[in-house]
Simulated scan of single mutants.
Amino acid sequence: MIKALALIPTYDEVESLPVLVDRLLAAVPELDVLILDDASPDGTGELADRMAAADPRITVRHRPGKLGLGAAYLDGFALGIERGYTHVIEIDADGSHPPERLRAMLELAEAGDELVIGSRWMPGGSVVDWPMRREVLSRGANLYARLMLGVPAHDMTAGYRVYSTELLQRLDLESLESRGYCFQIDMTVRSHDAGASISEVPIQFRDREAGESKMSGSIIGEALTKVTGWGIGRRAAQLRALLPR
């Protein structure tokens, strides 16, 4: 049986967090939730404490400052492993990931898939309330990452995921330097290279209704630069393996 912990990183999510957690626990009542708050100035951390006091399924980890999404998830992975969970879930606090699709993702995880991705770009997936420019950019970035890195996932940048803790323990997470947008790409590549079974579930992704997006052009540019470097390195390694010794 799956014992799953949902990881919810927060920074200024006081409006959206309670709505997301209510939907999440309505969809999967047996779930536990860990809120990882980066010292939100809007009171999200204090709200999370009140939610935890009212529901034993919810716990909170207060981090000293805005340390980034990747660092929050690495903290959550470590806590999930330490507390004996079989699976950990990544989900955004802003409500863009539909909790109602989590049951389908967990069914694939229970069947043995070690990484299950909630995918916008596989057949059946979609986005709502995105400008065309943003959709083209995201689709293009994912296609570029697939071609450069040779990983057969439609949505490598997706932030809605279920990982088995057995897989996480096989990965060298201490060497993972990615902390921003390309954290998800890096984790997908490492999972693929570790021989993980990876599957995707189509989701309808909605743009956040409250708060402000933390995405920027510089973050995307950094990710594309890293993907290019990783891709060149992987191609070079493949060529070296083909050369006679």
Results as ranks from 00 to 15, higher is better:
102 L>S: 05
113 D>C: 14
198 I>A: 04
106 L>G: 04
99 P>E: 06
124 G>Y: 11
140 G>M: 10
13 E>G: 00
236 A>M: 15
202 P>T: 06
238 Q>R: 15
51 M>G: 06
79 L>G: 05
197 S>A: 15
63 R>E: 04
75 D>R: 00
240 R>C: 12
132 M>T: 14
226 K>G: 09
158 A>S: 13
51 M>E: 04
141 A>F: 14
208 R>N: 00
116 V>G: 01
184 Q>M: 13
92 D>G: 11
84 G>P: 07
225 T>N: 15
238 Q>P: 12
160 Y>E: 01
84 G>R: 05
22 D>N: 10
11 Y>K: 00
228 T>I: 15
220 I>Y: 12
47 L>W: 06
73 Y>G: 03
181 Y>R: 10
6 A>H: 03
142 N>F: 06
192 H>P: 07
9 P>F: 01
19 V>Q: 01
142 N>D: 13
43 G>M: 05
16 S>I: 02
177 E>H: 15
213 S>H: 05
135 E>Q: 14
166 E>C: 14
54 A>V: 11
206 R>A: 03
47 L>D: 07
245 R>A: 15
74 L>A: 05
46 E>L: 07
25 L>E: 09
217 G>R: 13
16 S>T: 03
88 V>E: 01
37 D>F: 00
137 L>N: 11
130 W>A: 06
134 R>D: 15
221 G>S: 13
216 S>D: 08
36 L>G: 02
178 S>T: 11
44 T>C: 02
187 M>H: 02
202 P>M: 08
56 P>V: 11
109 A>D: 01
173 L>G: 02
213 S>V: 04
244 P>V: 09
188 T>R: 08
161 R>W: 08
18 P>K: 00
1 M>W: 13
30 E>N: 12
197 S>I: 10
126 S>F: 08
106 L>R: 06
97 H>G: 05
22 D>A: 09
6 A>W: 06
225 T>M: 15
152 P>W: 07
62 H>P: 02
115 L>T: 09
175 S>L: 11
154 H>N: 15
146 R>W: 07
209 E>H: 13
226 K>L: 15
179 R>C: 14
9 P>S: 03
140 G>S: 15
6 A>L: 12
13 E>F: 00
78 A>P: 01
102 L>C: 06
108 L>H: 11
185 I>S: 03
186 D>E: 15
159 G>K: 04
58 I>L: 09
79 L>P: 05
133 R>Q: 14
135 E>G: 10
27 A>M: 03
67 L>V: 10
19 V>S: 04
150 G>T: 12
173 L>Y: 08
185 I>D: 01
191 S>C: 09
26 A>Y: 02
37 D>E: 09
150 G>C: 13
13 E>P: 01
38 D>H: 00
167 L>W: 01
19 V>D: 01
7 L>V: 08
145 A>P: 07
91 I>Y: 05
190 R>L: 08
13 E>S: 00
62 H>W: 06
160 Y>R: 04
204 Q>N: 14
135 E>K: 13
63 R>M: 10
85 Y>N: 03
154 H>G: 09
54 A>P: 11
101 R>M: 13
79 L>M: 12
62 H>N: 06
215 M>A: 14
98 P>Y: 06
121 W>S: 10
